[in-house]
Every structure is written in structure tokens, then in C-alpha cells.
Amino acid sequence: MSAHATTEHAYIPGEIAKPNTGWIWKTFWVLVIITAVEFAIAFAMTSPGLRTFRNSIFIVLTILKAFFIVGEFMHLKHETKSLIWTILIPTALLVWLVVALVTEGSSIGETLSHMFS
């Protein structure tokens, strides 16, 4: 499908094909259902003890949603392997950045709270 844009073809009126939108609506429902599940969890799991577990579920579901948006809507799943890796490898570095700085933040917070005790 990615080849469509590069293929030059003269426009001939009246040769409009039937829409093929099944996969679009399927992706739509996947996104809606994941969002609904996120809301259900936000209100069902309110216990402070379950916070870390709850947040892990949120992060997994968010990445799943990202997979469907980038893979299907942005069509990356159907591009060449080299393009997929070109996008994914730099993005994966962000995960490291987040983990590193969140840890750093916790450490700063802890240091500050113990400073005067």
C-alpha cells in the first residue's frame, strides 16, 4: 500500500474503487475498548497499595494503543523493516530516559525530605 503514493497514474474519471474500510473500524474499536478498560481500572482499583500494579497496567495498555495507532493508522507495520527499525530504535531510547530520570526524581525527593531530620 505504501507504493501507492509513488505510483504516478493519470486520473481517469469514473474508475473510483469501492472503499475498503473494515480494518480502519476494527482498529477504531480496539482503541475504544482499550480506553474503556483504562477508565474501568482507574475507578475500580483505587487502593493505594495497588498503585504500582495499576500504573503498570496503564503503561502496558498505553503502549498497546500506541502500537495500533502507529502500526495501523500510520501504516508503519506495513513499511519496510529498515524504516520500522529507524523509527523504533531511537524511540526506545526514550524509555531509558524516562526510567533514569524518574529514578533520579525519587532520589532527589527522598534526599530533600531527609535533609532536616
Binding site: L94, L97, L101, I108
Partner: peptide, 17 residues
């Protein structure tokens, strides 16, 4: 994505602080 990643990383760090 890196710009927004920086924003969200800053958010995570400040929130954990």
C-alpha cells in the same frame, strides 16, 4: 517525539521528586 518525550520525562521526574 523526543520533544514530547522530554516533557513527559520532566513530568515523571518532578512528580517523583
Amino acid at each position: 517525539a523526543f520533544t514530547f518525550g522530554a516533557f513527559l520525562t520532566a513530568y515523571g521526574m518532578i512528580r517523583h521528586k
